[in-house]
Write a protein that binds this DNA or RNA. Structure first.
Lengths: 339, 339
DNA sequence: TTGAAAGCGCTAACAA
DNA sequence: TTGTTAGCGCTTTCAA
């Protein structure tokens, strides 16, 4: 059986109280006693039962992450990367990371509710925030700690980290405009998603700066998967007057766009410029390499996690609202428009 | 504050024991009393504190998953998919999923150790098993519950699910041989990884069946990332007598191979056949679509999770050794060899 | 400097 | 059918 604090106490012939204090380095323990206890504990391979500690502490030392995924076969690098960012930071700060998946919808709030009511987590990290986000509304209403990747339309205010998608898309627009593109199509993400609006506005405004008006027929709604990029690009490219550039709202869809174009015999770059958003690792090694906007998801995960844990531990400094500036990554998938 | 079982007991004027029993649907409680209790609990929004339950039960109701990733920027769809498979099954069976990441090495066993000693998890799921796998050795030595995705060289036996990579690669070899390829290169995974050996053997044997001997110079070791597929393919294709087909040990590297080939002006399919392994969602929508071997990672995750929970709950039926039969998915990245 | 005792919220053996 | 009591492993007041 596992060795408990009781065993250690028995071994050194002291009370468990003293042992506990020694192990926590309280200074009202005789240094020699302390040493003796620590040694004994180490020898016996004692390690505190975290369940017991947590029950006593009334804190789960655990943060929750519910991945909002529709399909079971989800392969979005976004998730693995933010997971790593959050996970590593959590580990560093002594917290566990509890992960579950749940498609947006009825069930979703229930999932959060269960986790809260069972006292299984102390706070959540919300990803892929939506314009009207029931998760955020719910957590605010419960006054439960959370941080979010992305702003939302919520009346109330909360701690978040976001990337300036508006600026990001403006950079894309500018880049494309300077290359001479005037007929640009785009494959957006679902309008539920909060960043969609920012990116769309940025794209529009950016193009407007160059007197380019986006043709509404060239706007398609995707779902962030490669498949949807592929399908939508097909439709776009088969139109009578197809775009010379397609702006995808994430890298995965951009890959789909490239595939579709190539399947139709177009040379991406030359015949059609394609841009993504995220700069996932693959973007550098696609053919052609993808022009995109960097989004330091790993780092953001870490920031969100750290902010959250500070909130939980009560050493929060207000509600940070951090908006990161994106960078344009110019690669080979965009070229000057052909005449 | 949260409502506890004590509050409920007070409300209905009964002992907490009775409340506990009623809530667990014991049949030694007066039906009317039971009803009254259940109602009161619902009204008060009572939900048991799982920390307390777990402490008492001496079980964390949690399974651990330590993702063995080297780079923080890991975007392997494999991980997100198995995560979903495990997570959904765990949720269904009332278990939490604790995720952490740790690169293989010194630190790794420490991570497992901490989780075990703190009694934070009841079992682990091991992924990406290695030929001599310290994780498996350690868990066996601790007699701690786990299931693994993949066999290993361990003397002892343990519960696993694996896909028959030997057969999978044989299918690939046969497919390529029938297309007339005789000069085939390959980009393997690290030889530490257990499946590497099976796949390699399958490839060799499969080719041998068609009297094809693989040129040792055409074998490169990759690390399962797109980048390594890209770099290795470049080298392979720049050789004086380049291969007409390249077999990558996973889809991600296969994409890298395609990018490299295309960058060199080759038409994948026509000038160079490329195969992958995994059939990740993207494989269908790359250009050209990728010939590969399916591996139902999501399902495997679920199986591993279910097996593990059965073991934990003591209703295990021995140590299942499941080896799934793969299927060849023929797509456009492979064509008959040119003369 | 140390220990006894209470209590975190819950379950379960035993008694009534 | 219900309640009393002990205890899961730990921390922390309070008293000695």
């Amino acid at each position: 059986m596992k060795v408990t604090i009781k065993d250690v106490a028995k071994k050194v012939n002291l009370s468990i109280t003293t042992v506990s204090r020694a192990l926590h380095d309280y200074d009202d323990v005789n240094p020699e006693t302390k040493q003796r206890i620590i040694e004994a504990a180490r020898e016996m391979g004692y390690s505190p039962n975290s369940l017991a500690q947590r029950l006593q502490k009334q804190q789960a030392d655990t943060i929750g992450l519910v991945l909002p995924t529709f399909s079971p076969r989800f392969a979005d690098p976004f998730f693995s990367e933010i997971l790593a960012g959050i996970g590593n930071m959590a580990a560093e700060l002594g917290f566990d990371l509890l992960v579950s998946t749940c498609a947006p919808g009825e069930q979703e709030i229930e999932t959060y509710k269960n986790l809260i009511e069972g006292a299984r987590v102390d706070g959540f990290i919300i990803v892929r925030t939506r314009v009207f986000d029931p998760r955020i509304e719910y957590l605010l209403s419960q006054k439960f700690a959370f941080t979010a990747f992305g702003r939302s339309q919520s009346n109330s205010t909360y701690a978040y980290v976001d990337e300036d998608g508006y600026l990001g898309m403006k950079l894309i627009a500018e880049h494309l405009a300077k290359l001479g593109h005037t007929r640009v199509g785009c494959i957006t993400s679902n309008s539920d998603l909060n960043f969609t609006r920012f990116r769309m506005d940025g794209l529009r405004d950016g193009l407007t700066d160059y007197k380019i008006v986006i043709d509404e027929n060239l706007i398609r709604i995707g779902d962030l998967t490669q498949k949807s990029g592929y399908k939508n690009a097909f439709e776009l490219l088969q139109m009578p007057d197809p775009p010379t550039a397609i702006v995808a709202f994430n890298d995965l869809m951009a890959f789909g766009v490239m595939s579709a174009a190539q399947k139709m015999g177009l040379v991406v770059g030359k015949d059609l410029s394609v841009t993504g958003f995220d700069d996932i690792p693959m973007a550098e090694f696609s053919h052609p390499s993808l022009t995109t906007v960097s989004q330091p998801v790993y780092k953001i995960g870490g920031m969100l996690c750290e902010m959250l844990i500070k909130m939980i531990n009560g050493i929060s400094n207000g509600q940070p609202h951090i908006v990161l500036k994106p960078t344009l990554i110019e690669r080979k998938s965009t070229e000057a428009v052909k005449n």
